[in-house]
Amino acid sequence: MSTAEFEKSIEGLEVELSDSRAGLPIEMDARDISVWFGKRKVLEGVSIPFPKKTVTALIGPSGCGKSTFIRTLNRLHELIPGAALAGEVLYEGKDIYSPDVDPTHIRLKIGMVFQKPNPFPSMTIRGNVLSGLKLSGMKRPNHDDIVEETLRAAGLWNEVKDRLNAAAGELSGGQQQRLVIARALAVQPHVLLMDEPCSALDPASTLKIEETIRELSKEITIIIVTHNMQQAVRVSDYTAFFLAAENEPGYVVEQGPTTDIFGNPRDQRTLDYVNGRFG
């Protein structure tokens, strides 16, 4: 073994040792993801493994590609005209972008909650919870049970159980956000992507949703984008820090257990960012 080869193997070893995700079962694995919008490259070489039933926070300054990245994980990215991608996302042991994979199946297994609460205004609360079944054509019996179960899981049941047939628009912003979480859960996803789910909410609703996230992570894998450092610390097991120089593609500076990223980052830029010194 040459010195170079030896150093390389040590390096690989070091990464594995320093990252407690190494031995865990992995739900989803993004490998070397690069993204373009038209000619413009906005993400470069992002690799993040997501262990089963854990919460991973994606943090970083505005415009560094967090939303773009999260949308590649359930194939929503490809719906934007001109969007392109390199790399692969392994899920159920298979690249979700391989030609024989049905994107509908992927979007059902990998649910999404957006920044702005977006319940369907033409549906009741109940109708919203069940809307995924209609939209995807998925068959599940016992709709009443599904409604109760998912609203409980989203921490909204007690507030709406007496008015399930009211318009979804009557709910407050925080309640609407929990409603769309229930809606996402009704199609039984294994992964839930959340893009700044609390950024439009008051502190009390935010705490409720954080509680919901912790609860949900006992059953499913969650990936959350957030600008709120305390939130990342409170809800996530792992954190990935994204960064992009001006007009350069974004990349991951550092990733690992949340305690390390916030308590003992290896990179100066991570330290500065988590301490609010830039971004």
């Binding site: 059902l108 957006f114 809606r183």
Partner: peptide
């Protein structure tokens, strides 16, 4: 667009999105 996004993320096709959303 956020409703269209929601429909897409719930596995909706163009036709179910039109019909229900």
């Amino acid at each position: 667009p956020e409703l269209i996004n929601a429909s897409e993320s719930l596995g909706g096709s163009l036709w179910t999105m039109l019909r229900y959303v």
